[in-house]
């Protein structure tokens, strides 16, 4: 598998290679990897990459994926235009 061509986070174009490089450099939590690589910071709010990244960390550390701590979830669930928020009640 070409790690350089496997994309973990589509929004921010973070590759598997980059994730493994950061794991090797000692970043072992989702919060740390997110903050350095932007993995999960894009408009989809990590919907796709969250489980992929969690699995990658679990494999690396040899732990159960359930014990990988997830980052705080922050709104919005769907990206909204600022102009819409400024107008208050309307929708576009």
């Amino acid at each position: 598998m070409d790690e350089d061509r496997v994309i973990i986070c589509r929004c921010e174009e973070v590759t598997l290679k980059r994730v493994r490089e950061l794991l090797d450099k000692g970043l072992h939590t989702m919060d740390e990897i997110k903050r350095i690589s932007r993995c999960g910071m894009g408009p989809c709010q990590g919907k796709t990459c969250r489980p992929l990244l969690a699995q990658e960390i679990a494999n690396y550390l040899g732990i159960d994926v359930g014990s990988v701590a997830l980052p705080t979830f922050r709104p919005p669930t769907k990206p909204v235009k600022l102009g819409v928020i400024a107008r208050g009640d309307e929708c576009d």
């Binding site: 894009g42 922050r74 709104p75 919005p76 990206p79 235009k81 600022l82 102009g83 400024a86």
Partner: peptide, 22 residues
């Protein structure tokens, strides 16, 4: 709401941008 109401009149280009996270 407050943030957007204060900033968009000063920088109107922001109205077209989507909020990703707070």
């Amino acid at each position: 709401e407050r943030m957007v109401q204060v900033v968009t009149p000063v920088l109107p280009v922001l109205k077209e941008l989507r909020l990703v996270r707070q």
